[in-house]
Nucleic acid binder design. Structure first.
Lengths: 345, 345
DNA sequence: GTGAAAGCGCTAACAC
DNA sequence: GTGTTAGCGCTTTCAC
């Protein structure tokens, strides 16, 4: 039966054969097994038969029922991605990388959005993801809670935490950049350019923020510089918080800041410019989390950049090949937002 | 059996009961039907029994097998999203809206990435989407080809084209903003500010670009202004093309341009600034496609803005409630990138 | 309020 | 090279 016929018959209220392998088998005068083989391009049947069957399937408007197929074969070739934080935009690059690589490896991606660090919904979402019998779960998150990780790890399903890690729990595997090194790298860059009073703006109170803070402290200490608690300001990595937090450093207490994220940096830049400041003369900014596209969002910003797209790629490979936790390297992209200062004596 | 026990037994190589309703039924001394009802929170069974069963399921680490469930019930509660264009970033807002709304309505979202206007892959992806027996397909695309729309429309599955539409084929339903009006709106804004030599930069040769071009022409003609073909420049809506296309208007032939997308506008801005131009004195830019977040990407840009998040929301509702095609309204966001010119005589 | 049983559409032994 | 058949794990109708 032709596709056109299908519509016509349906319109006329005529009975129509649902396109299933059973009906294809009947139409082709073969068994369902043969149809199944033909449609799966197995090589153990006569090419002519295979071709004829596929032709008929096409004409009947057949589309495989994935649910049935998965149930019977006990294979899903699916990766579940949980997105748990969209305040800052790094998830986009990661998801993009995941989608690309998954497709290369013939895997489906099923995406779950779990709200912004909403613990209850995250728990629920992790459970939903588990119901899909995926090959594994990739979790792009801003903060981790014990409860969710526990669900994941007791579920007997491979998973990776993306862009977040907990050194105290090495058993929870991750693909991330090294936040301590990032904090250190950014701070050292400013120190080398002569800055001594350096702020850290927009980090959070959880793992990621504290790791970056630790790196910052390590760099300052190694350089023999004092740290004033009033130089540290907390936020949620968002553009809005970046704009708000400018007021916290408006007193001129620091000559340079490490911005906790690309977005925080952009917000600071915007607020400072609006306040009539000339940058980088009055304030040097280096941001963390810059991605490939950060030239667009903040062309002027020197940044410790992570290749999030690559992180997505690596995550998929790491998950499917059962590799150990790994750090994604970071690069420093210099632009004109950092002012070299004469070294003080 | 407790979850902890599960791991211990597994480690010791002991036999372990796979958590299925059958095994739960056995453990609870009831039938599989009762278990199924309990887990689905049906109200036609004794609360005590239901609770006990759920307790046992929990202890066994049970997670429903979605494939089996879907197959048996013939319901998927799934929306398939096909992303077919990521050169410009509007898809992010849309996807975000879709994810949110879908979750509110208890629907899963399965995401397919089909490359960037890669026709062959799109065809393949549409077919994959169809295999998932979704309630419907949302297709975020930059350009449409007859082939894919045909597959969609002959597949007996509801679908909506997002952010693209073809007036010649009203039978293919869409949720989009009105590109003709957008082009007209942007052009009129510049005309009202006194501009007469107005460029249109970065549109494509397909539906969207031609519709915006038509709106541009309508506005110019209505204002009695001539149109010079050398004021129209084509591109792919990307930031890169925006930077490149600056060279096309560097001769000063126009005093203002309508940028085909947010990204094109940003690229023009960047290239112009790099070339030492003062904006908006030397060139006024108004961009199309600005989203809520465009303050971040191009804070200086006046823009005809579409609420892409809302477009995502609307798409889901429109699809599931079988509503007719609809346009999303646009708003104009004024910033300091357009220079009012004295009206020429 | 609960159980028995059919069957969703497909895959994969195994048989011939 | 192709057919037969037994499920995959769940839902749902029909009994009782």
């Amino acid at each position: 039966m032709r596709k056109d016929d299908y519509n016509k018959r349906k319109r006329l209220g005529m009975k129509v054969t649902k396109p299933t392998i059973k009906n294809i088998a009947r139409a082709a005068g073969v068994s369902t097994a043969t149809v199944s083989r033909a449609l799966a391009y197995k090589n153990n049947l006569k090419p002519a038969t295979a071709k004829r069957i596929r032709q008929i399937a096409q004409e009947m408007g057949y589309h495989k029922n994935v649910a049935a197929s998965q149930l019977a074969s006990n294979m899903t070739n699916t990766i579940a991605v949980i997105i748990n934080y969209t305040q800052t935009d790094f998830w986009i690059g990661i998801l993009n990388g995941i989608l690309h690589r998954a497709r290369e490896l013939n895997h489906q991606v099923i995406t779950f959005y779990a709200g912004d660090n909403d613990s209850r919904r995250l728990t629920q979402t992790v459970n939903e993801a588990l119901e899909h019998q995926a090959n594994g779960i990739l979790m792009i998150s801003g903060k981790m809670e014990q409860e969710q990780v526990e669900i994941l790890s007791t579920a007997h399903m491979p998973y990776r935490l993306i862009s977040i890690y907990n050194p105290e729990h090495p058993e929870h595997r991750y693909v991330s950049s090294n936040n301590v090194e990032i904090g250190e790298q950014a701070t050292n860059y400013l120190i080398k350019r002569g800055h001594r009073r350096i702020g850290l703006v927009g980090i959070d109170h959880y793992l990621t923020g504290q790791q970056r803070l630790f790196g910052y402290q390590r760099a300052m200490t190694a350089a023999g510089l004092p740290i004033n608690p009033h130089w540290i300001h907390y936020g949620d990595y968002s553009y809005q918080d970046g704009k708000k937090l400018f007021s916290a450093i408006q007193d001129g207490s620091v000559t340079a800041v490490v911005a906790g994220s690309n977005m925080i940096g952009a917000g600071l830049l915007k607020a400072a410019t609006q306040a009539g400041w000339r940058l980088p003369e009055q304030l040097s900014i280096i941001s963390i989390d810059g991605s490939d596209t950060c030239e667009l969002t903040t062309p002027e910003l020197t940044t410790v950049s992570q290749d999030f797209y690559q992180m997505g790629i690596t995550s998929v490979d790491n998950l499917l090949q059962d590799q150990p936790s790994t750090f994604i390297p970071t690069t420093l992209i210099e632009r004109d937002s950092v002012q070299p200062l004469p070294t003080e004596k």
